[in-house]
Structures are given as structure tokens and as C-alpha cells.
Nucleic acid binder design. Structure first.
Length: 364
DNA sequence: TCGATTTGACCCTG
DNA sequence: CAGGGTCAAATCGA
């Protein structure tokens, strides 16, 4: 794989992120008691900082992780959101690195692909509108393809895939199941990320030709982890770095995808390896498809998510090697890289020692 | 008519 | 072999 920008800088970034995580943990710990007494705003903020730092770290290490062995230095996420009953899905599943593969008719490929899927869990509370109905709207267009009664579960599990699967080979799927304890809650498990460039359901997010050109220029083309189109849009058009409002912001820390804005998402990668980030800058964010839109269109103000399932286990390396080679050697893969120059990241990181300060979406 | 949903069957994994 | 995940034909509805 081609190296992106210098690994030294990237490693430094990773170190900074690790430090940030540690600091956030400290902050969270110190605040925990008062949080219990005085509401959770600060605690939530700390939690979000922590979670987002972890996420950022994972992002930073994403590319490098491909060639690294499992490390005991993993930054193990220690917490989930207090209100989240979800735990990390820690099974050693990785991700769908090549959504460009069409729908496999071959069962072996399919199972292999299934194994490679990244997994997020999310939890959304049913709104009054959709209470008693299906899964809450998350801004993406899903098509139900199955339903199954799950052993020990009171409610059946529904299976959805991206509507644009056939058109663009988008491999994103999700499973929706009502929570046993609270039927108003939906446990949502996402697999794979959206590779479709068609506009999400609730807003138009056209992919400009310039974006694709710039992607080529950036040449970060790690394509195995595809982006949410809306996320690309966020990066391209809406991202701004706000280093001043952090303390004033009730909701504080916005990740570029916005999902941390007013929803309580806990990003808890099951594994964050710490080793040399020798690969190019990771292009892809691990992002819950639901959350990319949910800030705008959330059906619920009470939503938690957990990211997990990334475990670069023994099978990972061999699996990914095949796919990486397949992907990088090809020229017609549906590459959608982050449309955000690395220099901007670096600048951002360098200019904000207390990284992350605050991402927020520039909304009109 | 076409896209979405339902549902029984089949396949894969552990 | 059991259970979960997906397929695909049948059905529904706009």
C-alpha cells in the first residue's frame, strides 16, 4: 500500500490523541461525582470528548492498523454512555473493504464479506410518529429484505439494506430490533458503510465532480472503508473548527459527522491498536450510517450508539490483504475518499493543541 | 407498472 | 445441528 503523508506526523498525531484520551478520562473521572449530583452535561461532554478522541484515534490509525499486528497497547475504551445499555460488539469482525464487489451470488464470498463488515450498534428511541412501527428514520434510504424471530427476543429482527445496493453496490445493511425491556427503543446494528453517492433520503447531497477530482489529487486512496456521502459533504462544505465555543456549548463537541451533537453516541472501538501508522492517512471514518443524518432528522433526542466490532484479528490481515490488493490495483473501484486534504487535518491538529476542541457543523 | 415489503426456504457459521 | 443472515418469489400499494 502506498504511504500517504509522513508516518512520523501521523504517529505524532496518534500520540496526541492517546494523550487526549487519557486527559479526557481524567476529566471524566474528576467530574463523575459532581455529574451525578448536578446532571450530566459536563459528564456527557467529557464522555463525548473521550469518545471522539477514541474515534479520531481509530481514524488516524485506521490505515496503519492494516499492517499491524494486534497490540496490547490498545486503547481500550473503558466506558460506554451511561445510559446506553449497549455494549461493544466485540466479535472479531472487521469490515467490508470492498463494497465495490457486487452482490455476491457466491456464498463463500458473501460469507467472507459478511465477516469483514464493520459493525456499529445504535439505539434509537421511537418517536411518537413511528412508535409501534419500524425503525426510526435515520436519513438513509433502506430497504427491508428480511425479518426473523430471534431466539430469546420478544421482538423480531428486521434486516435492511441500502436501497442503492443494486445501483451502486452499496453494501450497508442494518438490523433493527426492538429492545426487550423498552419497546420504544430500537437496537440498531449497522454493517458496512454507505458507499452510495446518491443523496440520502432527507437531504440532497450531490457529489460534485470536483470532489472526485480532488480525491484523485489527494491520492489517499484507501478505498476499503467507504464514506458516507453526506459525511463527505460535511467535510467539504460544512466543517469548521471551533476552538472557542467549547466551554459554552452545551452540546460541545461535534464530530464532523455531527452525530455527537445532541445524540449520545458513544464511539467505543473494541480495539485501537497502537503501532506505527505507516500507511497513508486513513480516509475513512467509521461512521454509523444512522448518525450521519440523525442530527438533522433524528427521530429521537435520546439516542445512543456504540461502535464496535473492529478487531483486527488473525484473519484480518490475510483477508484484508486480498481485498486491499484487489481494490488498489483496480482503477474502477467506487472510490470515495475523504474530501479533506491531509494538510488541513494536520493544520487543524497542530493549531489546536487541546485537540479536539470542537468540530461543529456550519449551519446556516 | 414498479418499487417496497413479506415470508418461507436456503445458506453459513459457530 | 441450531440459530442467524440472506435470498427470492409472492404480495402489496402508490
Amino acid at each position: 500500500m502506498e504511504k500517504g503523508c509522513g508516518s512520523y506526523e501521523q504517529e505524532s498525531l496518534v500520540m496526541e490523541l492517546i494523550q487526549g484520551i487519557a486527559l479526557a478520562k481524567q476529566l471524566k473521572a474528576q467530574m463523575s461525582q459532581e455529574v451525578l449530583l448536578a446532571g450530566d452535561t459536563k459528564g456527557m461532554l467529557a464522555e463525548r470528548i473521550h469518545s471522539c478522541l477514541e474515534k479520531a484515534l481509530l481514524i488516524m490509525k485506521w490505515g496503519g492498523s492494516m499492517s499491524m499486528e494486534q497490540s496490547n497497547q490498545s486503547v481500550v475504551p473503558s466506558t460506554t454512555m451511561p445510559e446506553s445499555p449497549l455494549s461493544v460488539i466485540g466479535s472479531p469482525r472487521s469490515e467490508d473493504f470492498n463494497p465495490g464487489f457486487h452482490v455476491q451470488q457466491d456464498g463463500r464470498n458473501m460469507s467472507r464479506k459478511r465477516k469483514m463488515m464493520p459493525i456499529w450498534t445504535d439505539q434509537a428511541k421511537a418517536s411518537s410518529e413511528n412508535a409501534g412501527e419500524g425503525a426510526p428514520e435515520d436519513g438513509h434510504s433502506w430497504r427491508k429484505y428480511g425479518q426473523k424471530d430471534i431466539l430469546g427476543a420478544k421482538h423480531p429482527r428486521s434486516y435492511y439494506r441500502c436501497t442503492y445496493r443494486n445501483i451502486q453496490g452499496c453494501s450497508a445493511t442494518k438490523q433493527v430490533q426492538r429492545n426487550d425491556e423498552d419497546p420504544m427503543l430500537f437496537d440498531i446494528t449497522y454493517r458496512g458503510s454507505h458507499t452510495c453517492t446518491l443523496a440520502p433520503r432527507s437531504k440532497s447531497a450531490p457529489t460534485s465532480p470536483q470532489k472526485q477530482d480532488r480525491n484523485k489529487q489527494n491520492n489517499f486512496a484507501i478505498t476499503q472503508y467507504q464514506q458516507q456521502p453526506d459525511m463527505l459533504l460535511n467535510f467539504q462544505t460544512g466543517l469548521r473548527v471551533d476552538t472557542q465555543n467549547l466551554e459554552n456549548q452545551e452540546t460541545g463537541f461535534f464530530f464532523p459527522t455531527q452525530e455527537f451533537g445532541h445524540e449520545n453516541h458513544a464511539f467505543t472501538p473494541s480495539t485501537l491498536n497502537h503501532s506505527h501508522p505507516s500507511n497513508s492517512f486513513p480516509q475513512s471514518f467509521i461512521q454509523s450510517p444512522a448518525t450521519s443524518e440523525s442530527t438533522y432528522f433524528s427521530t429521537s433526542p435520546c439516542k445512543t450508539s456504540t461502535f464496535g466490532g473492529f478487531n483486527y484479528g488473525q484473519h484480518f490481515e490475510s483477508d484484508i490483504t486480498d481485498i486491499i490488493s484487489a481494490t488498489t490495483s483496480g482503477t474502477n473501484s467506487p472510490i470515495i475518499g475523504i474530501d479533506y486534504p491531509l494538510e488541513q487535518w494536520e493544520g487543524f491538529l497542530c493549531d489546536n493543541q487541546a485537540f479536539p476542541t470542537s468540530f461543529s457543523q456550519a449551519k446556516e
